[in-house]
Amino acid sequence: MKSNLIVAKFWNPDTLMDALAEVHHKGIPVYDCYTPFPIHGIEQYMDIKRTRLTIASFIYGLLGLSAALLLMAGVNGGALDLGWDIKSWQIDVGGKPYLAWVDFVPIAFELTVLFAAHGMVITFFIITGYYPGKKAELLDDRQTDDVFIMTIDADKVVRHDEIKQILTEKGAFEVKTTA
């Protein structure tokens, strides 16, 4: 975690939001907040853009769809020349056409969902940097229980005392600067 942060701790999410609104109004950039549960509407005070993970998911889904169709058309339909002489191995299965598109729908759908879901979650973990066994960097051992934290990058703001004053005024029960 970044050092030299102004840390303000609150015990009530409403108080935190109130303080955030004030800080945002004054044009002070917020570094991050740490809360035990997601607080809706917090993004507007922190200039958080809507994540593009949804777009990523869509692309993964398309990837899954094309992978599925290529696989099935290539394998059962003999539509692809994957380097082997597949054409000669088209197999008559119950008199169905080799490219039985209707039969391909269920698997195409499932692979779309599979790729979209897993691709998105893996990307989420990559961009957030969470991984199994990672040691959490905590500012307070209750920030995942009932303490709500706002941090401001002390390097990016001047007049630290004034900011701390505002935070205390707005209800922070503890305000400090990390080393």
């Binding site: 809507r50 993970l53 991984y131």
Partner: peptide
């Protein structure tokens, strides 16, 4: 701790987290 993937409740990650939960 190992199971928690180092989660610390960052609002930026909560924002992403909520969106991907919704998409999932």
């Amino acid at each position: 701790g190992a199971l928690s993937f180092g989660w610390e409740g960052s609002a930026r990650n909560w924002s992403r987290y909520e969106i991907i939960s919704l998409i999932l």
